[in-house]
Design a protein around this nucleic acid. Sequence first.
DNA 1: CCCGTACTACGATGTTTATCGTAGTAGGAG
DNA 2: CTCCTACTACGATAAACATCGTAGTACGGG
Lengths: 115, 115
Amino acid sequence: MSTAPTRALEHPEREEIRLEAVLHALSDPMRLQVVRFLAELGEEGEAPCSAIELAISKSTTTHHFRVLREAGVINQVYRGTAKMNALRRDDLDALFPGLLDSVLGADAAQRQRTD
Amino acid sequence: MSTAPTRALEHPEREEIRLEAVLHALSDPMRLQVVRFLAELGEEGEAPCSAIELAISKSTTTHHFRVLREAGVINQVYRGTAKMNALRRDDLDALFPGLLDSVLGADAAQRQRTD
DNA sequence: CCCGTACTACGATGTTTATCGTAGTAGGAG
DNA sequence: CTCCTACTACGATAAACATCGTAGTACGGG
């Protein structure tokens, strides 16, 4: 009925994003992998959940995306049947300058070391 | 007897420190408070567990210090009856350049905002 | 209207975590 | 040796978390 703008998803406002929640969200390998993937898409990059191949089930994937969204790390919007995901780089950089980049850098470095 | 150097504590080597573990260790408010405290002591700063007033019981405090130590965030040594704690800044900076500083900066910023 | 794709909600399970209190050990001071 | 201080180990508990499978809903295309 009417023009229901596709049901909306709960996101914390920029000011509501908590450092502890962000660190917790990033402290899981699966979620870090998602963030790395989104970061590699560049500035405006967005991707459906299905674009990221994780070695876990669909329902668990949904769970991890939700953790990331609720922590304020990613933005999720319904676009037709897909759900597009994007890093909230602007918000994170504004709140915690340099944090995201050093985490991504640390991850890349560790990955290279451990390879 | 001989010169038993007071019983030793398990610490990960520099190369064994995992980013995920560090992020997880830092994602708890109590532990972040400990790290902030130690960071404020400066380069060579070290302090006994009892120097940090946490709003939790002694046994829980012990637990958090252990999590930090096992993640490679702090170094603990017995010094007489006390157990001295120090940030492993050198190791962290070498492995994850900028990470610790941006977390501490982010924490300070958030604290100022939320005050 | 029916179907397929994409994602979710729910309920279950096993693991980890934060927390505590009590009882203990280790080391320095008397 | 005795006592005090500092910290730990253990056992318990309640909450949170990662994971799954099944059953469902939302949307676009035929």
